[in-house]
Nucleic acid binder design. Structure first.
Lengths: 196, 196
DNA sequence: CAAATATGAATGAACAGTCATTCACATTTT
DNA sequence: AAAATGTGAATGACTGTTCATTCATATTTG
């Protein structure tokens, strides 16, 4: 009873790591069970199956990301400040949960059509927030960009890529990395950062 | 027979499409043989195996990309012009060969250690060219960026992401997309594009 | 309190299928 | 004829999933 409830958490954690590391299709339920320290049959007491586990991981992550975004955006006014908040939240979140992010990005095509539609809808909601900020900035004449929809994708790809190279023991701290991405994002929309 | 000699090319083409579409691990040799119009056994007359086929596809692409880069860079002087050339080449190449690029980006972890080391070395050479340009621009005081190594990765992620969304029948032409990415890249290093 | 029963969880074998690869043999090309 | 190429069946390992069984712990009953 003490550990029965966190077996599910242990499975989720191990699955997240393995799926992100090797890819969904390259991880067998036996691999996963080994990583958790149990046999493959027992996994099915906690999850409907491999596909349900994947979509659970991805949906949990996307929902958490959207909630964090709503919270961060609720108390910010001004187009430039909203862009800053978005960038800070995005990069910081990606530095804190690199595996979740990497999985959500790489394994969308491993989802069943139904699950994929749900996850993609969540992702589009997220992307739409950034596009809205950029459109506002264009309408106000604050930003200088060619195309809001394209620029939103450029910024998202740029920022999301941080998970590919960042390591916690590296040359730069997380805060430094966030600042670097913020400066680049601001410059990319034609704004100079405030402090040199 | 006329087509017996280009069977190898047909296999490569089909494999490229399928691997990029579904992922290396989700494509079986049967799927591949079906797509080519032959039986799975025959594939082994042209390739050592599935892994060799993957690494052949990726290496061919990386070598072609590096050659195109060398050619494009050979006749350009000036830091800003070199950055422009790099961006134009990168985006245009990615628009022309989206499957090659997508595969090289997504399936590195599906490579055997030996093959992976070779491909990663090629990719590093490519990345190093962009970093060199950014470092030069910083040293000359032409670019305004926080960190050359990080900014190189930001730009590469941003530009490579074009393959995720661009479709040939979409709203924008390839040239328009290249120009949008060029403007964004120039602004991100603190330069305004020449023509408004 | 103690006996009986229910529950949640883990096991390990078994299932039906798929996997990449091999091979003896047929066919085609040169 | 010889070399290259394609076939179709076979191989053994591995796949996700199911299931009867076991076990320790709760809960209910006498």
């Amino acid at each position: 009873m003490p550990e029965s409830k966190d077996t599910k958490a242990k499975i989720r954690k191990a699955a997240l790591r393995l799926f992100a590391e090797r890819g969904y299709n390259a991880v067998s339920m036996r691999d996963l069970a080994d990583a958790v320290g149990m046999r493959q049959g027992g996994l099915y007491n906690h999850f409907e199956g491999k596909q349900a586990l994947l979509s659970n991981l991805m949906e949990t992550h996307m929902v958490a990301l959207l909630e964090a975004l709503d919270t961060a955006m609720a108390c910010v006014n001004g187009t430039r400040a909203r862009l800053e908040s978005f960038v800070r939240l995005h990069v910081a979140h990606h530095l804190s949960y690199p595996e979740d992010v990497f999985l959500a990005y790489m394994e969308i095509r491993s989802l069943d059509p139904g699950n994929r539609a749900r996850i993609v809808a969540l992702r589009n909601r997220y992307e739409h927030v950034l596009r809205g900020i950029l459109e506002d900035g264009c309408a106000e004449g604050v930003f200088r960009i060619g195309d809001s929809a394209v620029h939103a994708r450029m910024l998202l790809a740029m920022m999301t890529g941080v998970t590919v190279w960042y390591r916690d023991n590296g040359r730069l701290s997380r805060d430094e990395v966030v600042d670097l991405y913020l400066d680049a994002a601001l410059q990319s929309v034609g704004l100079a950062s405030e402090a040199s």
